[in-house]
């Protein structure tokens, strides 16, 4: 136990936790509106889309791959599921099934292209991003869908509270899906043999092959999982926006990548944890929220995000180099 604590204290996650807690403490003293249940629930709700995608991308990065196409996948899944839901009167299960199925199909296609053609994953997914997205907007003509099924527009609303101003808040669809995504990913990576094989694959692909891992199958799983998360995230986003817009999701893929990388996942594979990803996301969320709360124009929030990314990746690189400690290399 003490051993594990000592190890944790030297980890990227521990440093990130310290930064997030410090930031949170500063904001709590600076403004009374930060540490309120309502603000925290709002934050969770608005970051659910990025968070669910980050959980999926983490698995891909750990396996040693990368996926850029998931925003397009999400757009397709969302459009397909909700237009069918309205047209054929589908329920929760069918709608989610359709979105998830579409996501998985896109993910499997990515994996198949990467593994069978042996093109680097970044190139394949840049291509499929354009294919999925281009076809979607071509076929739909870029039309928004505002007419959503009633049950979907209402969403879910658990443990409802009402604050002093009579504004209700509680566990909604977004928060529920976000918690599910992170829990599922944590269980997958830490508690199942598939998750451990994914870490091993990302750590040393050749060795995994030699030891008899089913590398192709693992990659199908990994990109399929990313697609699964894209499907879920797409519905969380549509429910929040109360509409389906084929053109608004694409372009946010690098934001998700930034969150996962801030959380300590390596683009070289084999490294990254769910806790780190949660904290990476928390850092972005709390910082952007805090800037607004202390009265800095939201126009500047991107600047600070960029600054945080740059400082974080530079300091990580410097620490790694100091640890390696070789002047020659």
């Amino acid at each position: 136990m003490i051993d594990a604590l000592r190890r944790f204290s030297h980890s990227h996650e521990a440093r990130l936790l310290a930064v997030v807690l410090t930031l949170g403490a500063v904001l709590t003293t600076a403004t009374p509106s930060f540490l309120t249940l309502q603000n925290l629930f709002d934050l969770l709700t608005s970051y659910a889309f990025l968070g669910i995608l980050a959980a999926g991308l983490l698995v891909v990065l750990v396996a040693g791959g990368i996926d850029i196409s998931f925003t397009a996948t999400a757009s397709v899944a969302q459009y397909l599921a909700l237009s069918f839901a309205k047209a054929y009167g589908l329920g929760w299960a069918e709608t989610f099934g359709l979105a998830i199925g579409t996501g998985i199909a896109c993910g499997l296609l990515n994996a198949w292209l990467i593994e069978s053609l042996r093109i680097s994953s970044i190139i394949v997914t840049i291509a499929t991003l354009n294919i999925f997205y281009g076809l979607l907007v071509f076929v739909t003509g870029g039309q928004y869908i505002y007419a959503l099924p009633d049950w979907f527009s209402k969403g879910i609303w658990w443990f409802e509270f009402v604050d002093a101003d009579q504004i209700p808040y509680g566990v909604n669809l977004q928060i529920l899906l976000l918690l599910l995504a992170f829990t599922a990913t944590w269980v997958l990576l830490n508690r199942t043999t598939i998750g451990r094989q994914i870490y091993a694959l990302g750590g040393n692909r050749d060795a995994a092959g030699r030891l008899g891992f089913h590398v192709f199958g693992l990659n199908l799983f990994v990109y399929g999982y990313m697609g699964f998360m894209a499907g879920i995230a797409s519905l969380a986003q549509a429910q929040l926006a109360q509409s389906v817009a084929p053109t608004v999701l694409v372009g946010r893929e690098l934001d998700v990548l930034a969150a996962v990388v801030l959380g300590g996942a390596s683009l070289n594979g084999g490294v990254g944890t769910v806790l780190g990803t949660v904290l990476g996301l928390a850092l972005l969320a709390v910082m952007q929220n805090g800037l607004v709360l202390v009265g800095i124009s939201s126009y500047w929030s991107q600047f600070f995000v960029g600054l945080v990314i740059l400082v974080s990746v530079s300091s990580t690189s410097l620490t790694l180099r100091r640890r390696a400690g070789s002047a020659v290399a």
């Binding site: 930034a258 990388v261 683009l267 991107q302 600047f303 960029g306 740059l310």
Partner: peptide
């Protein structure tokens, strides 16, 4: 600083756009 190019330029991309937007 030996930061991987994809991460470094992801950072400057956001930072520079942030300056433009701001």
């Amino acid at each position: 600083l030996r930061v991987s190019p994809i991460l470094a330029t992801l950072g400057t991309m956001t930072l520079v756009k942030g300056i433009s937007v701001g």
